[in-house]
Amino acid sequence: MFLQQLLNGLTTGSVYALIALGYTMIYGILGLINFAQGEIYMCGAFVAVLLLATGKVNFYLAFAAGMVAAALLGVALERVAFRPLRGAHPLVPLISAIGASIFLQSLALLLFGPNDRPFPIQFTFSTITVAGLPLSTLQGAILAAALGLMGLLMVFVRYTRYGKAIVACALDRDTARLMGINVDRMVALTFFIGSALSGAAGVMMAIYYNATYPRMGLLPGLKAFSAAILGGVGNIPGAILGGLLLGVAESLGAAYVSSGYKDAIAFAILIGVLLLRPQGILKGRGD
């Protein structure tokens, strides 16, 4: 029972971590929180689900399309709701992102209706026992995919030219420009990558909960934000750790404390962290 809950927690936690990475990367480079991250996640899920529902697209293609659509939405969002407001009081882009989030959510509501959509294809998942632990292959697949994507991101940031350029922009924008780095392009790239990860998270959750609906991004978005803070905003390994911890805490809390307040656990942790250690578990750029 305990181990099962732990596994459930790690699974949802790995998805929170993927979304939290988007928050953290964007915060790192712009110092802003992209409030519409949850809607980008929702967009990824919808695109994959709608494509699969046509019956003409295979699963991997639909998954990739969900990621790309989310990534493009993220880039568009940056152009429309963030870039024109650069240099303004930080409240201004924050509220603009809130506006964008509402807009996207209600657009999805108008286009697709309020009801849950099941995932269009059935996977035959079994339960295997790994080291005495019952692990559903679905959970295993989600965990593996999420961790794989995170690994790819870490490699990108550490070892590629563009990854380092993104870090340079986050550290010191003017000096980065003196290296010939086009900051606007790096910001767009950051939105692209962060949003693609959120899109992937959306597709995974659409499969896991077998439900895709316009407001599906609200709670995971909030929880991922909490995870990003937990790990120290702007800190990539921190976001991953924060996501996993939060997923586990939520799962154990729901099992052993109260399931009615499951969704409140993340925020209770968030407020607790802000109270005790506002810089996060690993130190972040947040202040």
Partner: peptide
Amino acid sequence: FRTLSVSANLEL
């Protein structure tokens, strides 16, 4: 770039 390695600074 303080958190980047010396060689990453040079590459940039």
